[in-house]
């Protein structure tokens, strides 16, 4: 299929643009998203094209704007609420956790909430503890939410288009470090369904599961390991809820080894839950315990050296892969 090189932010914009053109109930609200085009330029040009009714700036009122988005979704529109930093979504947690996530069940299935919160998280900007968090585990834990974390422009576009066509509340978690990254995006209609992972690199010795900005980092690690003759399979679930369990299990049964990489701090994280799935399904076929490479259990510090130290780096992934392959011990045995 023919593709074009797009930046992550351009791919997101294309998704919003195409869906706004196709569906008059899609609209977007957020701080500085209209005239200014948003802090990450995702919504640039949409005001001129769709007008102030469908592209609106909001005051700094996260609980209010998330709540208003949830209400609009319940009433049959398809709102996108852009929250500058996932950290600020904490002000709207009641609306996400107690309203959006619960509504379908509380109404016995009649009420649906096609509400999309687009936001971004992660480290990389030296923006300190309140602007650097990876909070996917909070949303992952809440039944009723969909949790989407695209790592490439192509996935960003396809998943956002899918999000705008399905019926459940979506936490669409972008990464601040990815907006300017480029990648091929298929021409024409491009939709990526939820719950379908993607093998970002095929391999046979070890399965590494990662998402969001840990994908490019893991791919670099895989490249370095390939030079040493180690073949790494890199799996990106793309959506954490729903999770493509089958792809993960199939890959681990093939490689017999599993490493999970997450930028979020380790305690109570999504990686731990995936590890529990892997051991439950693959334990007797595995040659090593599951390894988790995760952020430190501490708020992200401002100092750049410390920021780096607090989240997984390429070297950490390389080391973990070698550990599950017992490379060190083999070398020691050979001495």
């Amino acid at each position: 299929m023919a593709t074009r090189e797009l930046m992550y932010r351009e791919a997101l914009r294309e998704a919003i643009d195409e869906e706004m053109a196709a569906n008059p109930t899609v609209f977007i609200i957020g701080e500085g998203i209209a005239e200014r085009g948003g802090s990450y330029k995702v919504t640039e040009g949409l005001l001129a094209k769709y007008g102030p009714k469908r592209v609106r700036d909001t005051p700094i009122a996260e609980a209010g704007m998330i709540g208003v988005g949830v209400g609009a979704a319940i009433a049959g529109a398809r709102p996108i609420v852009e929250i500058l930093y996932v950290d600020f979504a904490m002000l709207g947690m009641d609306m996400i956790v107690n309203q959006a996530a619960k509504f379908r069940l509380m109404t016995g299935g009649d009420g649906r909430v096609p509400f999309i919160m687009r936001t971004q998280g992660g480290t990389g900007g030296g923006v300190a503890a309140q602007h650097s968090q990876s909070l996917e585990a909070l949303f992952y834990h809440i039944p009723g939410l969909r949790v989407v974390m695209p790592s490439t422009p192509s996935d960003a576009k396809g998943l956002l288009k899918y999000a705008l066509r399905q019926e459940d509340p979506v936490m669409f978690l972008e990464h601040k470090h990815l907006y300017m990254t480029k990648g091929p995006v298929p021409d024409g209609e491009h939709v990526v369904p939820f719950g379908v992972g993607d093998i970002k690199r095929e391999g046979s010795d070890v399965t590494v599961i990662a998402w969001s900005n840990m994908i490019p980092r893991t791919l670099e690690a895989a490249e370095a390991l390939a030079a040493e003759g180690i073949s790494v399979e890199v799996i990106d679930p793309r959506t954490l809820v729903p999770l493509d369990r089958d792809m993960i299990i199939k890959s681990v049964l093939k490689t017999r080894r599993c490493v999970i990489v997450q930028e979020a701090n380790r305690r109570g994280g999504v990686a731990s839950d995936i590890a529990s799935i892997v051991q439950e399904e693959c334990f007797y076929e595995m040659d090593a315990p599951v390894e988790i490479v995760a952020g430190m259990d501490i708020p992200v510090p401002f100092n750049l050296t410390l920021e780096k130290a607090s989240v997984p780096q390429k070297e950490d992934v390389v080391a973990a892969v070698k550990r599950v392959l017992h490379v060190q011990s083999l070398a020691a045995a050979a001495e």
Binding site: P24, T25, F27, K53, R54, A63, G64, I66, G67, V68, G69, V70, G71, A72, A73, I74, A75, G76, A77, P79, M95, Q99
Partner: peptide, 14 residues
């Protein structure tokens, strides 16, 4: 309150 305002917003958009 926010849910109701959201419904009103949806109706204005529609």
């Amino acid at each position: 309150t926010p849910l109701g305002v959201g419904a009103a917003l949806a109706n204005q958009v529609k």
